[in-house]
């Protein structure tokens, strides 16, 4: 009896050990892939060009188009964050298009996926690396926060949730781009498909689109709700009002999760 129980307990510890070992291995692999991606981003001019142009464009839209001074509000939501769904629409596919397309073009995907790496480790590592670049670009817009803080007394909580919403929005576009990047070995193709899909995410919640759907299917109010449910803007807007709703977080997380899952499926299908 005693020997039996010892064996069982040993088995149990072995089980949890291999589980923690699995997590440690996954984390190690994700970190290694992430590091390589970041190195590649900043080894070539891609990363710098991306960040500099994003900063120039967001400044231009905020002060010139967004009339930051004319509005006369100590807030960023109507002048700065307002443009982010459109700015990210161009910039995020540009940073993410190479994630898998480049691997497939160079043939390095065969190296990466025959190393002791689960496809998931690689997908998450690459996604996080590109997201970090997005986050860095976003973080470098901090002078605008200083400006608004110097000119007036803004609600820093709303600014914080605004940044959080923008980061999640960028992550969502990025996950879409990861998926389209797996589709093709041509970066331009993956860029275009990604822009179109992200544009759909923006437009899905817009009234002209929902009205249009309603006109075609007058009786299908459910369908209209369904299409509108894909819209990213209402979820993004909630963050701009300083609201962090679990439903909005769930929306972003589920789109990101779905697109990364689709990336795995596409990669698997393209191999066979």
């Amino acid at each position: 009896m005693t020997t039996d129980s010892t064996i069982t307990s040993e088995n149990q510890t072995a089980g949890t050990d291999s589980a923690t070992e699995g997590v440690a291995l996954a984390w190690h692999n994700i970190r290694t892939v992430l590091k390589r991606e970041l190195l590649a981003s900043f080894y070539s001019p891609v990363g710098y060009v991306f960040i500099v142009i994003f900063l120039l464009m967001s400044g231009f839209f905020t002060f010139m188009v967004g009339q930051f001074f004319e509005i006369g509000e100590a807030s960023l939501s109507r002048s700065f964050f307002l443009w982010h769904p459109w700015l990210w629409l161009v910039f995020v596919p540009a940073i993410g298009m190479r994630l898998w397309a480049e691997e497939q073009r160079m043939g390095t995907i065969e190296l990466l996926l025959t190393m002791p790496v689960h496809p998931w480790h690689a997908i998450v590592g690459k996604f996080l690396a590109a997201w970090l670049v997005v986050a860095l670009a976003l973080g470098l817009t901090f002078p605008i926060v200083l400006t608004v803080g110097w000119l007036g007394s803004p609600d820093y909580g709303v600014i914080f949730t605004g940044y959080l919403g923008s980061l999640l929005l960028g992550g969502t576009y990025l996950a879409v781009t990861s998926m389209t990047s797996a589709l093709s070995r041509n970066q331009v193709v993956s860029f275009i498909i990604s822009v179109v899909l992200c544009l759909f995410l923006i437009l899905a919640g817009f009234e002209p689109v929902t009205n249009f759907v309603q006109q075609i299917f007058p009786d299908a109010s459910r369908l209209v709700d369904f299409v509108a449910g894909f819209g990213v803007v209402p979820h993004f807007d909630a963050f701009q009002r300083g609201i962090v709703d679990v439903r909005d977080l769930f929306y972003f997380a589920s789109v990101i999760g779905f697109c990364l899952f689709a990336t795995a499926v596409i990669l698997q299908a393209r191999r066979a």
Partner: peptide
Amino acid sequence: IGYLPESAPAYSDLS
């Protein structure tokens, strides 16, 4: 396993 694929791919954007 060590693997050298056909046409020897390598990450050209790294040293």
